[in-house]
């Protein structure tokens, strides 16, 4: 069982790193459009990696119900399609309303 625990810990650590980087980017970046860059990419992969680690944990410890990892895989697939679409919808709404993009040398907004 030790090799399974090591793989699950690796996936969870990677997922947590990307999730934290996404939140730090939300605080550090100076503009609405650049904050969407940070969260739309890092949050998706971070949550996807955490859920993949949990799938592997379920395959090792609860081998009685093999259909649950299939439904978790569907959840990962749904997140990979839905999060970029929501990011794109928010960015388009911001552009149509008229939020000005940030150029190098402006102050933070």
């Amino acid at each position: 069982m030790v090799i399974g625990d090591v793989i699950v810990t690796l996936f969870l650590a990677g997922g947590l790193f990307f999730t934290l980087v996404g939140s730090i980017g939300l605080l550090r970046f100076p503009d609405f459009y650049t904050r969407l860059h940070a969260t739309g990419k890092c949050d998706t992969l971070g949550t996807g990696l955490i859920l993949t680690g949990v799938i592997i944990y379920h395959l090792f410890h609860y081998s009685g119900t093999p259909l649950v990892p299939v439904r978790l895989a569907f959840l990962v697939f749904f997140i990979f399609i839905a999060n970029p679409a929501a990011t794109h919808a928010l960015m388009k709404a911001g552009y149509e309303v008229g939020v000005k993009p940030w150029k190098l040398g402006d102050e933070r907004r």
């Binding site: 790193f17 990307f18 980087v21 730090i24 190098l104």
Partner: peptide
């Protein structure tokens, strides 16, 4: 993105 966020000088130029 992780390199751009964690870099102390934050090299972005949108």
């Amino acid at each position: 993105v992780a390199i751009r966020v964690l870099h102390p000088k934050m090299p972005i130029d949108p």
